[in-house]
Design a protein around this nucleic acid. Structure first.
Lengths: 337, 337
DNA sequence: ATGAAAGCGCTAACAT
DNA sequence: ATGTTAGCGCTTTCAT
């Protein structure tokens, strides 16, 4: 039998109220003597209050749900860590949920998390969310969106934290141009995805600003993975498209592209410059080390919780949308000068 | 105001007991009519029972704690995913906790998880656990250890799931020898770590079985990361040690080693063969693609939950220790024939 | 086939 | 400075 507040109260010869007060530091009005007695009793018996019972009355669980597509996607561990660190330092725990980009799993988790009375949710929404209306109604747990924006109106979405994708793409492409790259291919992820669209816009913008023309034939749309990068780069070469640089929708695509280029016998960056997006852990492990645009992944997680915390405290947000700045990480996959 | 079981009961004109029964499918004795009435009411009002209230009486939270060193370590996302998948399919959720290998954080989380009344815990213990006694007393939540074994007696540790490290090392080294590699260096992780020790044993064993001599000068001990691999390989070459193969304590070490070898102007596998351990995602992304020993990471997580579930059901375990088998993954970093 | 009553372990007015 | 009472939203015996 686990020991309860009653036991401590009995042992100390006081009421549970008194014990409760010292547990929660509402003990200004409690004499030092009883306070000490209770404290040492709690220590002696290794008493820890049941958060479940507490939650039932306070309506607070001190837990936050984290919904992401897949922790195995190298983008998410850092974000998750940022979430955990900020949450932990505020006394919150994380329930973590993988959805594999399936809306059904997302909805299911949203429901479960509500039943578990989490205080709030951080969610990197499924990229397919846009396609149909949110099925969750009567929902009241506040949600902060990270990484992926979705259009659908959900009034329980109280905040958003993203990276500036337009700018990230712009500085990537500008960097290439500044290094003397002339014809830049864009191997994109799915253009159903908002981030992809913004990156495309950034790409176009940088070209235009530098007097270069945008050519639809230079846009290759596919998936956010290595296989697609491999395939697209190879196809581009075989089709005979003329290019000396590739801007990739993310690092995975870039890694695949570099690989196939090398297999074909082209060298990176001497023949073709390649730049990625995200700066995942792997990107500095491959050869050449990948030049890329860093997304502040850890910070995104961290700031999302920060925002959620303010919401939970009932503070007003200056802005319900926080846009974090990307950085250019210059390594060796883009020609120098 | 969230709707409660009372509301549904009132609306249906029955007692909360009756509603409770249909919620929990203990409704054999409930007439179809009331059952239907209640069900449709629940749907109509989007009623979901509070698991917090339920937990308070049932003493079950249907949540499992997952304690790992760091989700950013590429070893853990897969394991975590295995944990989540198995847990989810059994109706459990995961609270996830990163300890950075700090015993204090581990103890803190152990305590928090107990307060949150998790039903059980899956833990990849800090490698430093051995160094001092567990500080957690009066603890009763069942724990299943994964990946890392620790000696300390903790009676709440009810199960263990590991990979056969000895065998993994043995097949790695045997493979190299079979391909004609003669002098094999072992760049190890910390030998305070049980897994490292077992791998060292496997290495020695394979050498011996093949009539090769073990030479202490061929054992380099350091950290489980890329920097150490880079440094150790370089040092070995510079010291003039004669070798044509390296068995690495894990893939990160191998990746670092390959990198420094290439920088020095040696080619892998033509000059030096390199084999890793773990088969993390990155290992097939580098060049040459890394030959390695796969640890069944996902399965470890999955099976650990499987074991925990049986423990929670009160079933007897055939064995409180499950040893999973590693596989040799032949790619391109070891010379062929 | 259904309900009354008690209780899970805690907190929060409100007394005293 | 401390205690009484009620109640959070459920489940569970035991009646009826």
């Amino acid at each position: 039998m686990k020991i309860t507040i009653k036991d401590i109260a009995r042992l100390a010869g006081v009421s549970t109220t008194t014990v409760s007060k010292v547990i929660n530091n509402k003990d200004e009005s409690i004499s030092q003597a009883t306070r000490d007695r209770i404290t040492s009793l709690m220590k002696e018996y290794d008493y820890t209050p049941s958060t479940v019972a507490r939650s039932l009355v306070t309506k607070k669980t001190n837990t936050i749900g984290l919904i992401i597509p897949d922790i195995r996607n190298p983008f998410f561990p850092e974000l998750a860590r940022g979430v955990e660190d900020r949450a932990n330092s505020a006394g919150y725990n994380i329930i973590f949920c993988n959805t594999d980009n399936k809306i059904e799993k997302e909805d299911e988790y949203l429901k479960i998390l509500a039943e578990k009375m989490v205080d709030g949710i951080i969610m990197a929404a499924s990229s397919k969310r846009d396609e149909r209306l949110a099925t969750v109604k009567g929902y009241s747990v506040p949600v902060v969106l990270v990484d992926r924006d979705i259009d659908v109106e959900m009034d329980y979405v109280k905040g958003r934290v993203f990276t500036d994708n337009f700018k990230g793409a712009r500085i990537a492409v500008e960097h290439m141009i500044n290094q003397g790259v002339k014809k830049i291919l864009f191997i994109s992820g799915p253009l159903t995805n908002k981030a992809s669209i913004e990156r495309l816009e950034g790409y176009k913008y940088a070209l235009k600003e530098n007097g270069l023309e945008y050519d639809e034939g230079y846009l290759l749309e596919g998936e956010f993975n290595e296989d697609w990068g491999w395939e697209a780069a190879r196809a581009a070469v075989e089709t005979g498209i003329e290019f000396d640089g590739i801007f990739c929708g993310n690092d995975l695509i870039a890694i695949g592209a570099v690989k196939s280029l090398k297999e074909i016998g082209l060298s990176v960056p001497e023949d073709i410059s390649v730049i990625g997006f995200d700066d995942i852990y792997v990107s500095r492990l491959i050869e050449p080390e990948l030049t890329t645009v860093r997304q502040p992944k850890y910070e995104m997680g961290f700031e999302a919780v920060e925002m959620l915390l303010r919401i939970l405290e009932g503070k007003r947000l200056k802005d319900a949308r926080l846009i974090l700045q990307p950085d250019l990480i210059i390594r060796d996959s883009v020609r120098k000068g």
